[in-house]
Design a protein around this nucleic acid. Structure first.
Length: 206
DNA sequence: CGTTCGATGCACT
DNA sequence: GTGCATCGAACGT
């Protein structure tokens, strides 16, 4: 926020992402993911993330070394890594750490801020989207991508200067909790999921 | 309320 | 051919 109360529209810079992944994950909670698409602007405060850190993390896609799919994780921090999961859902990650050190933060849930009607329209293929509560529109990584209009075309996009960005609007999200990552088997013991305690938009473990 | 299960595309073996 | 960093409809309780 600026002195006169206007919201700054400057996306987070490269240096924000060029840090240890767990620190970036914690600091992403409370920031605002924004997509300025042709159909309209959608945004939401990040309330739930998971860290996937390096080739030694068995749950990380880079655990078997570089492949065609996970290459974005080896690239420059601050870029998107989007992949298709279960043949149905695009999952949105933000590359972290440093070039050559494969790591990323999976964004799992947002508290919707702008463009709620558009989010609802994008999710309308699912039955009941019209009576779904606002806080459920971006709850869960697959739902979030669909509501925000994030697709595989956004893979490798630079979040520092593109229609897709993360901004600091000065929100204080409240107390954070670290817990187990969801939907994995190997590496499930690591407490690398960070969320806002008790927030209604968090996908699980509220 | 709870649990189970099918959909669906593609990277990887 | 196998197995997903998921979701929600369709059951059962």
């Amino acid at each position: 926020m600026t002195v006169d109360g206007r919201v700054t529209l400057v996306p987070l810079g490269r240096e924000f992402y060029l840090r240890p992944t767990l620190a970036v994950a914690a600091d992403l909670v409370g920031k605002v993911l924004v997509h300025r698409a042709p159909r309209g602007v959608t945004s939401g405060m990040i309330v739930e993330v998971e860290a996937y850190v390096g080739e030694r993390d068995p749950a990380c896609h880079a655990s078997a070394g570089p492949t065609a799919r996970n290459l974005p994780m080896y690239g420059e921090p601050g870029h998107a890594y989007v992949y298709l999961n279960y043949g149905v859902h695009a999952l949105f990650n933000i590359v972290t750490e440093a070039a050559g050190c494969p790591a990323a933060v999976l964004v799992r849930a947002l508290a919707p801020l702008e463009g709620l009607a558009l989010m609802r329209r994008r999710r309308a293929r699912y039955r009941g989207a019209s009576r779904m509560p606002d806080e459920a529109l971006c709850r869960g990584p697959g739902n979030l991508a669909r509501a925000m209009g994030i697709t595989l075309k956004h893979n490798r996009i630079d979040l520092c200067g593109s229609p897709l960005s993360v901004e600091d609007r000065g929100f204080s999200p409240g107390p954070l909790v670290w817990s187990r990552r969801i939907g994995i088997s190997a590496g499930a013991e690591k407490m690398w999921r960070c969320s806002v305690a008790g927030h209604r938009s968090v996908s699980a473990g509220r």
